[in-house]
Write a protein that binds this DNA or RNA. Structure first.
Lengths: 245, 245
DNA sequence: GAGTGGTCTAGACCACCGT
DNA sequence: CGGTGGTCTAGACCACTCC
């Protein structure tokens, strides 16, 4: 490993490694190809495996690599663009669908109660869904609607039927405006399971609040999207959906 | 260190640790307080320091902790809500300001050319700015406008003056619609420096495309916001700005 | 200088995948 | 089974901040 000159750099090895790998990947690899295994790569660059992994971690966070246990490290497909609905109605087309998981009624979690302007512990309906795109689970959503907003949901139905009832009533609500926020998070056990990934993977957390004309909160939805494979898109235009092969 | 029973868990130690730490933090610490140092914490939990750090990494990604070299690990302030302008005009209030870095003219990077529907290497104006909020640098933006859209920018001005000229002309453009996307990335050297952070920190990458009434792209801006301390907000409502103390 | 987090090492074992 | 990534260890040294 002849040192290539320009030695004294206050730059961490793993960052330099990342740079080199980015260049190599962009130049010599294409989607779906597998990189050499970590032990070989580490040896080739003359670093410990942990250091190499630190570089790969970065590239995975950027969505450039996918690591599969037992298989190897491969070049990731471009991120899937996930349309975030602008108008309240307007339902999805093609391979963009939701799968209902369950539906419950109960006291609102503290954060939800606050977002809805409710007393802590007020009753809310909650519907959990998984968003499927191109056959993959890309995100989870939990919709919270205060019981006061939606008092007439039949209690005797099965989960999935009740969920549909809640969603239907939700779409009929006089939603006048919405506000959203996007932030970084990590998937807890529950969402991770729904996304068929281990807990701890990075997710984009999308929180949407729905308001009535009077400005009162009507509902809140909290969604988590796989940050490695997804890109949230707002506004018309590019509904570019490129699936992984 | 009495093993607490329920041993055989296929759950990684670092994830369990994270759970414990979350509970402890929520219950016993508040913003700005410092945690015990990593070596002590690791010893207390009976794990190697690297394992403890893995747990802390997660919490930092979630914006719950801030680690400062030479100081310690402290409880982070709630994330700052960053309004993403809805209407084209509408300029910020209060402590939300932009600081111009520089302004250039030159061939468009490949990705930019594609987003603008230009031939690779076409000339574009580019303006770089840093967004300041509550006295902190929270994000960087580079605005790209095709030279063809803006042919009359004086070349003899100083950087900052030219930047202002480009921004002024940009605001006068007949922008009819915008589309945005948000994804996860890591800060490269340049943005990292502007954000006064080391390279590699996670950022939310916001890409905005501006279209004319005819549907042609007028400009593109690429922004990076610190994912640890920021939360992007869309739509009216909560312009909740809570600064770190 | 003492104390902190940041980087790096060299090794080990485990969980998973294919054959 | 052999090969892959995932986890974990016990140590070392560095860069930074404060006293």
């Amino acid at each position: 490993m002849g040192t290539t000159a320009t030695e004294a750099a206050p730059e961490p090895k793993y960052w330099h490694l990342r740079t080199v790998l980015v260049r190599t990947i962009d130049a010599e690899f294409s989607t779906g190809e597998v990189l050499p295994n970590e032990r070989d790569l580490a040896a080739r660059f003359g670093v410990a495996r942990a250091t190499l992994r630190q570089a790969l971690d970065q590239l995975e966070l950027e969505g450039r690599l996918v690591r599969r246990r037992g298989i190897g490290t491969l070049i990731a497909a471009p991120r899937i663009g996930i349309p975030v609905a602008e108008p309240t109605g307007l339902e999805p087309a093609g391979s963009d669908t939701w799968r209902i998981i369950d539906c419950g009624v109960g006291p609102a979690p503290a954060a939800v109660a606050e977002a809805l302007g409710l007393e802590p512990g007020s009753g809310v309906h909650s519907v959990r869904r998984v968003r499927m795109m191109a056959g993959q689970a890309v995100g989870t959503e939990t919709l919270f609607v205060p019981g006061t907003v939606m008092p007439h949901v039949p209690g005797f139905l099965a989960d999935s039927s009740r969920a549909r009832a809640v969603l239907k009533q939700f779409q009929a609500l006089p939603v006048e405006s919405e506000s959203r926020s996007v932030e970084l998070g990590v998937a807890e056990e529950e969402p991770a399971r729904l996304l068929e990934r281990p807990p701890g993977i990075p997710v984009l957390v999308l929180t949407t609040r729905y308001f009535s004309a009077e400005g009162g909160p009507l509902a809140v939805s909290v969604s988590t999207y796989r940050a490695d494979t997804c890109k949230l898109t707002f506004g018309e235009a590019g509904v570019e959906v490129r699936a992984a092969s």
